[in-house]
């Protein structure tokens, strides 16, 4: 389960080797924007070695490769796929075809390497107007898609508007992505908050993303991880309520009742599903107090 994803510049050994202890649920080894064209080859080898030799237990590994319209992306995949990263972040995904292009090549490599089909997930980075409009088609393009990921910096440039801290300019893109991802039954991650010195603003921004339905959020600074992790974790009140829901349902079943109310509200299937997700998350995060008793 991923709440927070931290970008690590792909050619910076000091950041890479410490990436697993910074508090992120997942790290994104960046071969794209954080690496200059002259160092693409070096970063690729360095990231591959980091994946191969460093222990990232408890921290999922994502690689942002270069986009399919560059000369680098296949070499990026060639280098990192044997190390079995959990996810590939595919920048500038504008159409379902972009995702399918990457999917086809990853499939080819999986076969060559003897990896199970779809063992490496794909996370399209939606950062163009075209990508936002095609969000559902992209999310539903193939089985490999694990999540959509919103990239607001490039998107606002494409929209010809200014990126602001409040984020009014990306409201549509945010809600559109959440709807598209949920319709396709995949996860959805919010763009990083970019002011690394604003320790308050990150909380507001993360709370907004959570309220809109995002699964989690990316970060470019470890200083933002605590706000993201806390915001996207279930609260103790939510966990308690989830248990009450499940107990009420169990009791209703035992009594042969069809429907049941809890705290004056009818418990229906979506509420039960949500309660189950909450408890599952709490268990994974070790927040489940009932385990301790």
């Amino acid at each position: 389960m991923i709440r927070s994803m931290l970008f690590l510049p792909g050619n910076n050994p000091n950041m890479l080797i410490n990436g697993s202890v910074l508090g992120a649920d997942a790290v994104i080894f960046d071969l794209e924007d954080a690496v200059s064209p002259a160092e693409k080859d070096a970063a690729r080898v360095l990231v591959r070695n980091t994946l191969r030799y460093m222990d990232f237990t408890g921290c999922q590994r994502i690689v942002r490769i270069n986009s399919t319209d560059t000369a680098y992306w296949k070499a990026d995949l060639d280098a990192v796929l044997p190390e079995k990263p959990e996810l590939i972040l595919l920048p500038k995904t504008g159409t379902a075809q972009d995702a399918l292009t990457a999917d086809a090549y990853i499939t080819e490599l999986e076969e060559k390497l003897g990896l199970p089909a779809n063992s490496v997930g794909l996370m399209p980075l939606i950062e163009t107007a075209l990508g936002v409009e095609n969000a559902y088609a992209i999310a539903a393009s193939c089985k490999r898609i694990h999540a959509l990921f919103l990239g607001a910096e490039d998107l606002t440039a494409d929209l010809r508007c200014k990126r602001t801290k409040e984020g009014r300019e990306i409201e549509y893109a945010r809600t559109r992505l959440v709807v598209a991802a949920r319709a396709a039954d995949v996860e959805v991650y919010d763009t990083p908050f970019t002011d690394v010195n604003d320790d308050e603003g990150i909380w507001t921004d993360a709370e907004l993303a959570k309220a809109l339905g995002f699964t989690g959020k990316a970060a470019i600074s470890p200083r933002h991880l605590e706000a993201i992790n806390q915001t996207f974790s279930p609260t103790l009140a939510e966990i308690d309520y989830a248990y009450e829901v499940l107990e009420a349902i169990a009791m209703a079943k035992a009594q042969g009742k069809g429907a049941i109310a809890l705290r004056g509200k009818m418990i229906d299937a979506p509420i039960v599903a949500r309660a189950q997700r909450t408890i599952e998350m709490a268990e994974q995060l070790g927040l489940d107090r009932r385990d301790a008793e």
């Binding site: 050994p13 080859d41 080898v45 360095l46 591959r48 070695n49 030799y53």
Partner: peptide, 23 residues
């Protein structure tokens, strides 16, 4: 003070560049 995986990566990159293989 590089870790071994970093040193190995740097040597490999230098060799690939020296062979004219770098992309």
């Amino acid at each position: 003070g590089a870790l071994e995986c970093v040193i190995r990566a740097r040597v490999e990159t230098a060799v690939l560049r020296g062979k004219g293989d770098a992309q």
